[in-house]
Simulated assay, not measured.
Amino acid sequence: MSATEHKPKPLPFVANFAAGAIAGISEILTFYPLDVVKTRIQLEKGKTQGLVGTFTSIVKQEGVGRLYRGLVPPLLLEAPKRAVKFAANDYWGKTFLDLAGEKKMTQNLSVVTGAAAGATESFVVVPFELVKIRLQDKNSVYKGPMDVVRQTVAKEGLLGLYAGMESTFWRHVYWNAGYFGTIYSVKAVLPKANTQNEQLMNNFVSGAIGGFAGTVVNTPFDVVKSRIQGTQKVPGVVPKYNWTYPAIMTIAREEGVAALYKGFVPKVLRLAPGGGVLLLVVEFTLGVFQEG
């Protein structure tokens, strides 16, 4: 749903952009190690060690610092990524309301709005996601983010930084549709907030449930995205994981349907409460702008 729907007056694009940026940085600093564990599990072929085993293995074999490997790209990304997410959701929400001739957001419009926001967001995140995935890989030999960029461009050309664009597009479309669509539904059934603390709690609860729903829907697409971006292209060789839906079928056939949900536990442990933190911080920040 539109992040500003219940506000007495509309806020400018820059307010939604800033609120999303602040929320994104807050979320990534809190939950990043879970993202590293998730990526490691998704890149493993066959049986994995699971959440605890992978986490413990990383700490024992590579040190605690490895849990923050690749933090710089997503940290640089989170501000524009989350800012675009909420600003685009606000923009598309207003646009679809006008097109549909509606005055208030509906369930169907909230899902379509979220999907459009996710599609918009996907174009921003791809190069950052690719750098992050390649740094998080257990077998990574890169010295840092810029080394990934240099080697990728040298071997695959500038467009190599956009490997996985199609899978990233679907990942964000489905997550945002599930996230914002669920937020609309949950907020509709929660008790009306009479105080600011109750409002903040409602935002956290609806955002957390939305984060869970989005994760359930988009995890197979995230697994495929990690596989595509984690594999360097070899000239003249067609990548095993290339396009999203054929790759989903390949993984299901070779590793079983359950493999499409590899990394689900650390992913949902991050994005359920993370989704709550995002909405809470966004709404709180917009409230500050509203009063300013």
Rank of each mutant, 00 (worst) to 15 (best):
M1H: 04
S2V: 01
P8S: 11
K9Q: 12
N16H: 15
A21K: 02
T30C: 05
L34G: 05
L34D: 07
V37D: 03
V37N: 01
Q42M: 10
E44L: 13
Q49E: 05
G50H: 08
G53Q: 06
Q61M: 08
V64N: 04
P74T: 12
L75C: 02
L77Y: 05
A79P: 04
A83H: 06
A87I: 03
Y91K: 12
W92T: 14
G93S: 09
F96G: 10
E102N: 14
K103D: 02
K104T: 02
Q107M: 07
T113D: 09
G114R: 03
A115G: 13
G118H: 02
A119V: 08
T120E: 07
E121Y: 06
V126D: 03
P127I: 09
L130K: 11
K132A: 15
K132G: 12
R134A: 13
Q136M: 12
D137H: 08
K143E: 11
P145V: 12
P145T: 12
M146K: 01
D147N: 06
V149C: 07
Q151L: 15
K155S: 14
K155D: 12
E156N: 06
G157E: 05
G157T: 14
A163F: 01
G164L: 02
E166M: 07
E166G: 04
W170E: 08
W175P: 02
N176I: 08
A177E: 06
T182Y: 02
I183C: 01
I183H: 03
Y184A: 07
S185V: 15
P191E: 04
K192G: 12
K192R: 04
A193Y: 10
T195G: 06
Q196V: 11
Q199L: 14
Q199N: 07
M201G: 05
F204N: 00
S206P: 04
G207V: 15
A213L: 00
G214S: 09
T219E: 12
P220N: 08
D222E: 15
R227G: 08
I228P: 01
T231G: 03
V234P: 00
V234L: 00
V237R: 14
V238K: 15
Y241Q: 13
W243H: 14
A247C: 08
A247S: 15
M249F: 12
A252P: 02
R253M: 02
G256A: 10
G263N: 07
P266A: 06
K267V: 09
G275Q: 09
G276T: 14
L278Q: 03
V282K: 01
G292H: 10
